Computed example of a mutant assay.
Amino acid sequence: MAEETRSRLGRGLAALMGDVGAESSTSDRAPKSQRRVPIEHVKANPRNPRRIFADAELEELSQSIRERGIIQPIVVRSSKSEPNTFEIIAGERRWRASQRAGLHEVPIVVLEVTDAEALELAIIENIQRADLNPLEEAAGYQALANQYSHSQDDIATIVGKSRSHVANTLRLLKLPDAVKSYINEGKLTAGHARALINQSDPESIARDIVEKGLNVRQVEKLRQDDAKAAKKPKSTAKARKDANIAALEKQLSDALGLVVEITDKGRAGGVLGIRYRTLEQLDDVIAKLQRG
């Protein structure tokens, strides 16, 4: 793709459509004038990076459309497979809400763009409107890389983000499914999600974030603590631990299903430590102790 086209795409649909006004009318990307078409002639884009449409938001928008109509037209391109049919580039939420509102026609503006440009524009518009959750954004970047052989540098230029932002966003796709569910449900922010990358137990930490309301700074501290613990040289004290103490640790660990550490300080007594990761594990230990 030419640098000029990438620059225009990177500024979004509004910039692209505004630029066209100063170009020749023979431009292959020039939008046709706004018009109205039957709503059934407009189809969703299967490559739209946005997958989640909150029911409450759709209902609120549909009520607004019933009262005032659609103020901003839906941006589409001509369908390659169905005559007189259009594929949405931007505005699927308005289209869905219009269906709920019972509209028979919707306003559209047609852009003639390639498959790759349509995906790029959809990602750009959603990012600029903050409509994508972090996983949808990551999936969009992955599609640009896999389907159109874009490098991370290419993607960064197209969407107007840094290469590190693109790289870190793509890494979110490697998080466990349970963590992804929290992100899709809006329980974890983009900052939370990025802080979970490379954590030894991201699923457990994600659960703590949701249950305890941890902020991003607190999660970052957990990551730093984990890194320090990993670098800390192993103490030789455990190697010199009394065989009877070690056997007792194993016996208690087997009984509780958790890691148990006993630190014997001789005449000064000692410390019995039981490690737990979740509140459920703590409740289970307490219940066992209370039963005697």
Rank of each mutant, 00 (worst) to 15 (best):
E4P: 02
T5M: 15
R6A: 09
S7Y: 10
R8F: 11
G12V: 01
L13C: 10
A14T: 14
G21A: 14
A22R: 14
E23D: 14
S27G: 09
D28N: 09
D28E: 13
R29G: 12
A30K: 12
A30Q: 11
S33Q: 13
R35M: 14
V37M: 05
P38T: 08
H41G: 08
P46I: 01
N48S: 09
N48Y: 01
R50M: 02
I52N: 05
A56I: 10
E60N: 09
S62Y: 05
Q63E: 13
R68N: 13
I74C: 07
V75C: 06
V76P: 01
S78T: 13
S79G: 08
K80G: 15
E82T: 11
E87N: 08
E92I: 06
W95G: 06
L103T: 03
L111P: 01
E112H: 12
E120Q: 14
E125D: 12
I127K: 00
R129S: 13
A130D: 08
D131Y: 01
D131W: 02
P134T: 00
A138G: 06
A138Y: 01
A138R: 00
A139M: 11
Q142V: 02
Y148R: 03
Q152P: 01
D153F: 12
I155D: 02
T157M: 11
G160R: 05
K161N: 07
S162H: 06
R163G: 07
R163V: 14
H165S: 12
T169W: 01
T169Q: 04
R171I: 02
R171T: 10
V179A: 08
S181W: 09
Y182Q: 14
Y182L: 13
I183T: 06
K187V: 07
L188V: 05
A190S: 12
A193H: 00
Q199L: 15
D201K: 12
V210G: 02
V210A: 05
V210N: 02
K212L: 12
K212C: 06
G213L: 04
R217A: 09
K221P: 01
Q224N: 11
Q224Y: 10
D226I: 14
K228I: 10
A229R: 13
A229C: 03
A230F: 01
K232I: 07
P233T: 08
K234M: 12
T236H: 11
A237Q: 12
Q251H: 10
G257S: 03
L258D: 02
V259R: 11
V260H: 06
E261L: 09
I262P: 05
R267A: 11
R267K: 12
A268Y: 08
R277N: 13
R277I: 07
T278E: 03
L279G: 09
D283L: 08
A287Q: 09
K288G: 04
Q290K: 10
